[in-house]
Amino acid sequence: MLNLRWISFFMAVFLWVACGNNNVPDAKVSEKDSAGAAEVQLLGEVKHIVFFGNSLTAGYGLDPSQAFPALIQQRIDSLKLPYLAVNDGLSGETSAGGNTRVEWILKQPVEIFVLELGANDGLRGIPLDETVRNLQSIIDKVKAAYPTAKIVLAGMQVPPNMGKAYSDRFRSLYGELAEKNKAALVPFLLEGVGGIPELNQGDGIHPTAEGHLILAENVWKVLKELL
Rank of each mutant, 00 (worst) to 15 (best):
Arg5Ile: 07
Phe10Val: 07
Val13Pro: 00
Val17Glu: 09
Val17Leu: 13
Asn22Ala: 11
Val24Gly: 06
Asp26Tyr: 11
Ala27Tyr: 15
Val29Leu: 06
Val29Pro: 00
Glu31His: 15
Lys32Phe: 03
Lys32Pro: 01
Ser34Asp: 11
Ala35Phe: 15
Val40Phe: 10
Gln41Tyr: 14
Gln41Phe: 14
Leu43Cys: 09
His48Leu: 10
Phe51Arg: 00
Phe52Cys: 06
Phe52Lys: 02
Gly53Asn: 07
Asn54Phe: 04
Thr57Pro: 05
Thr57Gln: 04
Thr57Asn: 06
Thr57Met: 00
Ala58Leu: 07
Gly59Leu: 03
Gly61Asp: 05
Gly61Gln: 08
Gly61Phe: 04
Ser65Pro: 01
Pro69Val: 14
Ala70Leu: 00
Ile72Met: 04
Gln74Thr: 15
Gln74Gly: 06
Arg75His: 12
Arg75Gln: 13
Ser78Leu: 14
Ser78Gly: 10
Lys80Ile: 11
Pro82Trp: 02
Tyr83Asn: 04
Leu90Ser: 10
Ser91Ile: 06
Thr94Val: 10
Thr94Tyr: 08
Gly97Trp: 12
Leu106His: 06
Leu106Trp: 11
Glu116Cys: 14
Leu117Met: 10
Leu117Val: 13
Ala119Ile: 14
Asn120Thr: 13
Asn120Leu: 09
Gly122Thr: 11
Gly122Tyr: 07
Leu123Arg: 01
Arg124Trp: 07
Leu128Ile: 13
Asp129Thr: 15
Thr131Asp: 02
Thr131Gln: 02
Thr131Pro: 03
Val132Ser: 05
Val132Glu: 10
Lys141Asp: 05
Ala144Asp: 07
Ala145Thr: 15
Ala149Ile: 02
Lys150Asn: 05
Leu153Ile: 13
Pro159Ala: 03
Met162Ile: 10
Gly163Asp: 08
Ala165Asn: 11
Arg169His: 11
Arg169Val: 07
Arg171Glu: 09
Ala183Lys: 02
Leu185Phe: 06
Val186Tyr: 02
Glu191Ile: 11
Glu191Asp: 12
Gly192His: 15
Ile196Lys: 11
Glu198Gly: 01
Leu199Trp: 03
Asn200Cys: 05
Asn200Tyr: 06
Gly211Glu: 00
Leu213Cys: 10
Leu215Trp: 00
Leu215Phe: 03
Glu217Ile: 12
Asn218His: 08
Asn218Arg: 04
Lys221Tyr: 07
Lys221Asn: 11
Leu226Ala: 03
